[in-house]
Computed example of a mutant assay.
Amino acid sequence: MFNHNYFVYITTNPNRTTYYIGVTNDLPRRLTEHFENSGKPGTFAGKYFCYNLIYFERYPSPNQAIDREKQLKGWSRSKKEALIRKQNPNLKFLNELAFE
């Protein structure tokens, strides 16, 4: 079987006031799409300018990633923020890491 990468990721807007949680098998492409859709009201991430990566996790299967995405979406904002700050204490934008 091939070794695949699936990502659960959290993006935020420039002021870090809104979070978006998603899943993808191509993180750089997905971040580019979020940036290109910024300001467009047709999508949540676009409407709220959520194109700055602040957290991600890697999984070997799509089912694991989807299950984790659903779990995170059910969490309170404070619980999500605590998780993010464990990996990224200053909520630094991590987009450059995705494009390495």
Results as ranks from 00 to 15, higher is better:
Leu72Asn: 04
Thr11Val: 07
Pro14Val: 10
Tyr51Pro: 01
Arg16Leu: 08
Tyr9Val: 09
Thr12Phe: 08
Gly22His: 09
Val23Ala: 05
Asp26Pro: 00
Thr43Cys: 03
Ser38Thr: 10
Gly22Glu: 05
Ala65Leu: 04
Tyr6Gly: 03
Asp26Val: 00
Thr43Arg: 13
His4Glu: 15
Glu69Ile: 05
Phe7Pro: 05
Asn63Ala: 14
Leu53Phe: 01
Tyr6Gln: 02
Pro14Trp: 07
Ala45Asp: 11
Ala65Lys: 04
Tyr9Ile: 08
Cys50Tyr: 06
Tyr19Asp: 08
Ile54Thr: 09
Arg30Phe: 05
Asn37Gly: 00
Leu31His: 10
Ala65Phe: 06
Tyr48Ala: 02
His4Cys: 04
Glu69Leu: 10
Asn25Val: 00
Lys40Glu: 13
Lys40Val: 14
Tyr55Glu: 02
Asn13Thr: 00
Pro14Asp: 05
Asn3Lys: 14
Asn63Ile: 12
Ile10Glu: 02
Asp26Arg: 12
Thr12Val: 01
Tyr9Asp: 06
Glu36Met: 06
Cys50Leu: 07
Pro60Trp: 01
Ile21Asn: 03
Tyr51Trp: 06
Tyr9Arg: 04
His34Ser: 04
Tyr59Cys: 03
Lys47Thr: 08
Pro41Val: 13
Cys50Glu: 10
Glu33Lys: 13
Glu36Gln: 14
Cys50His: 07
Gly22Asn: 11
Asn63Arg: 12
Ser38Asp: 11
Thr32Asp: 15
Ala45Cys: 08
Gly22Lys: 09
Asn25Thr: 02
Phe49Ala: 06
Asn25His: 14
Ile10Phe: 01
Ala65Pro: 06
Asn52Asp: 14
Gln64Pro: 00
Ile21Thr: 14
Gln71Ser: 11
Tyr59Gln: 03
Phe44Arg: 11
Pro41Gln: 14
Thr18Tyr: 07
Ser38Tyr: 00
Asn5Thr: 10
Gln64Gly: 01
Thr43Glu: 03
Ala65Glu: 04
Asn5Leu: 10
Glu57Val: 05
Gly39Lys: 03
Thr12Asn: 06
Gly22Ser: 09
Phe49Ser: 10
Asp67Glu: 10
Tyr20Gln: 06
Ile21Pro: 03
Ile21Gly: 03
Thr24Lys: 03
Arg58Leu: 02
Tyr6Asn: 12
Tyr19Trp: 14
Asn37His: 11
Tyr51Met: 01
His4Thr: 12
Tyr6Ile: 08
Arg29Asn: 07
Thr32Glu: 15
Gly39Trp: 05
Arg29Tyr: 13
Asn63Asp: 14
Leu31Glu: 05
Thr11Ile: 10
Phe56Glu: 09
Lys47Met: 11
Ala45Asn: 12
Arg58Gly: 00
Thr43Leu: 07
Gly46His: 10
Pro60Ser: 14
Asp26Ile: 00
Gly22Ala: 12
Asn5His: 14
Arg29Ile: 00
Leu72Ile: 11
Lys73Ala: 12
Lys40Tyr: 09
Glu33Leu: 12
Val8His: 08
Asn5Ala: 13
Glu69Cys: 08
Thr18Arg: 13
Thr32Tyr: 10
Pro41Arg: 14
Lys73Val: 06
Pro62Arg: 13
Tyr20Met: 00
Lys47Leu: 06
Phe56Asp: 13
Pro62Ala: 08
Ile54Gly: 07
Thr12Glu: 08
Thr43Lys: 12
Arg29Lys: 15
Cys50Asp: 11
